[in-house]
Design a protein around this nucleic acid. Structure first.
Lengths: 157, 157
DNA sequence: TGCAGGTTGTAGCCATGGCTACATTTGCTC
DNA sequence: GAGCAAATGTAGCCATGGCTACAACCTGCA
């Protein structure tokens, strides 16, 4: 349980409501992240499938995501429209250069989040589960803090 | 049939492709969280507005979220349908018992995530921004790890 | 060679979460 | 008490991300 009766840090002195402008900015940033997380999940998964099995097929993506194949086909169409993916009818799916860059970025961020969660004592299973959702909302600054923490812990034994 | 060539190509420790079943579970959990995060944002914000200003009006919510008032009205309708909110036409908005419970839970989780990010050296601004998106994907286990870390740091000076 | 079954694609449905434009209601001020 | 500005509500549009059902395509094997 979490004790939210914990008062007195200066972050929300006298009324916890933040400044409206800042709050708008935060929510807008979050909405922006929400719009891109599906794309990131897809390109990351496609890259993984290609690296480990040689190709990414719609049916494999569907099985991995736990989603119908029709959903995958439609989403792949959008990704292609957005220039992240290349696919020809009835052939398997490839990443464009932009898609590959995004996949590599997503993948490294994902891995760092997992490592960080493990480093602070989260179980393997939960680390992977939580990372899947968290990764899309972790800014470079926070990512850097994660990395620092891992390094610090490593050097301290 | 499904020849998951699951041999570890050593890209990462033990091959980075996870077991399919676990991956499906992770993605499903993430999708579940995505469906509830808007509701959580709303009830949290409504609770904040009520606590700090006495009432929550649609126009205030809209201004805080950076969204049109029509979007807010429609969403409030869904929240009411789902039993999280009570509102009568042309009146301000209140939380049901369930809504209040959800708001308190979301709020405490939010605050803990912010505190944790600050504790590992993230700036105030980024901590608040990232927490807004991350909070919805942090499991109780990870939250507990966050709390442990804060405690540990506090006692170590 | 042909066909059965798996894979891919298409069509059409639904809910969500955005938006603009317009209509209605409220409440304050004069 | 009338009028006006602000708040609320309604209608209708769009894209996204789900789904099922059905159609088309490819391929391996008998």
């Amino acid at each position: 349980m979490i004790n939210m009766a914990e008062e007195g840090d200066g972050a929300r002195d006298g009324g916890r409501i933040p400044a409206p402008d800042q709050q708008v900015a935060n929510f807008c940033q979050t909405r922006r992240a929400r719009r891109t997380e599906i794309a990131e999940d897809y390109v990351e998964l496609i890259a993984d499938l290609i690296d480990s099995g040689g190709e990414a097929r719609a049916v494999d993506i569907a099985r991995r995501l736990g989603v119908s194949h029709a959903t995958v086909i439609k989403t792949i169409g959008r990704l292609q429209r957005d220039g992240l993916v290349v696919s020809k009818p009835y052939r398997s799916i490839f990443l464009s250069d932009a898609g590959r860059r995004l996949a590599e970025w997503s993948r490294s961020r994902h891995d760092l989040v997992v490592k960080f969660l493990l480093a602070i004592g989260v179980s393997e299973e939960t680390a992977h589960a939580d990372a899947e959702g968290m990764e899309h909302h972790v800014s470079p600054e926070t990512l850097a803090a994660f990395e620092r923490h891992i390094q610090r812990q490593r050097s301290n034994g």
